[in-house]
Design a protein around this nucleic acid. Structure first.
Lengths: 156, 156
DNA sequence: CTGAGAATGAGAGCGAGTCTCAGTTTCAGA
DNA sequence: TCTGAAACTGAGACTCGCTCTCATTCTCAG
C-alpha cells in the first residue's frame, strides 16, 4: 500500500470526509496540515499552543470526526495526553520511538524484510488464538539522547 | 531471564517492597494474587467487581506502590481504563492480543527466534536514532472470535 | 506493651476529554 | 444572487478515571 502523495493529501481527506457526509472546513484543513507537518504523533496542547483562537472542544470534535472518516488515528502513550497522527495509508507504515523519561515520540520506519517476517509470524499466531483482521502496533521505548545525557552527564 | 516461579512470587514481591521501605500487606497480596491468576492485564473495575470492601483509592495507591517497587506494570490500551499486569521478570516476556471491538486483552508469548531477530534489529535502529536502554512493546490488534462471529453471523 | 511510621477508607479535588446549545458558516437548489 | 436546511463552531458545563488529603487503623521493632 503506497502512501498518498503529499499533493493528494487534502484531496483524499476531503473525499473521505464527504463520503461520511461531512465538510472539509478550514479548521479541519489546518489540523491535517499540522499533523502532516509534524511527522510524529501530536498531543492536543501542541496543537493549541501558538494557535490561539482554536477552541479546545472544536479541536477534539474535529479530530474525532477525522478519525471517524479514517484519516486520523489516536495513539495511546503512557502520557497524560492522547496523541494524534495521520492514518498509515496516508503516511506509510511505521512505528514509534518513545522516550520513557520525557515522553517525546518520533516516527520510525522499519526494514521491509523484518516487517514482512514479523507480519507473517504474527498473523499466524493471532489466527491460532482465534483473532481475525489483525494488524500490529510496535513501539520502542528507551531514553532519548537528551534525557540520557541529563541522567549521566558526560561521566566526567 | 527466567520468570520467577509461582511459589516464589510472594517472596519476591515482599522483598522488593521491603527494599523500598514498604510493607507487604494483606490487600497488596490480594492484588498480586488477582494479577497472577488473571494471566492478562486487568482493569480496575475487574479488580473491584466481586471484591466488595476494597476502597478504589487504596487499590490505585497500592497498584502505584507496587509499580514503584517494580513488580507491577501499567499497560495503556485505547480503552477507557488503564490496565495492570505483573512485570515481565515475574511472568516472562510476552505481548498482547487486543480485540479492537470489545477491548478484551490476552497475553501472547512469542517464538524465541522471531523475538531474538526483532530485538537485535530494533536495538540497532533505536541506537541509530540516539536512543539507549531500549525495550519494546508489541501489540496485535484484531477481532476476537466472539466479535467476529457477532459481526458476520455464520454467513448462513 | 508501646509508639512511630506505614496503610487504609472516604470523599474532595484535578484534569483530559465529551456534551450541549446558541450563534455562524456552508452549499445545493431556486 | 438569494435562502433555508444542515453542518460547523466556541464557550462553558459536565463526566469520569485517577490522585490527593486527612483522620483513623494497623504493623512491627524495641
Amino acid at each position: 500500500m503506497m502512501p498518498v502523495m503529499a499533493s493528494d493529501l487534502h484531496g483524499t481527506v476531503e473525499s473521505r470526509l464527504r463520503a461520511a457526509g461531512q465538510r472539509y472546513t478550514v479548521q479541519r484543513r489546518r489540523l491535517i496540515d499540522i499533523l502532516a507537518r509534524a511527522g510524529s504523533p501530536v498531543a492536543l496542547p501542541d496543537i493549541l499552543r501558538g494557535r490561539r483562537g482554536l477552541a479546545q472542544s472544536s479541536v477534539y470534535r474535529n479530530l474525532a470526526d477525522l478519525e471517524q472518516a479514517g484519516v486520523v488515528r489516536r495513539v495511546m502513550v503512557e502520557d497524560e495526553h492522547g496523541r494524534y497522527e495521520l492514518t498509515e495509508d496516508l503516511t506509510g507504515h511505521h512505528h514509534h520511538l518513545i522516550c520513557s523519561s520525557c515522553g517525546r515520540v518520533q516516527d520510525l520506519p522499519m526494514p521491509v524484510e523484518l516487517e514482512r517476517t514479523m507480519d507473517r509470524t504474527l498473523d499466524g499466531l493471532a489466527r491460532g488464538a482465534g483473532f481475525a483482521e489483525v494488524s500490529h502496533r510496535l513501539d520502542l521505548i528507551g531514553l532519548c539522547s537528551g534525557c540520557a545525557a541529563r541522567a549521566a552527564p558526560t561521566t566526567a
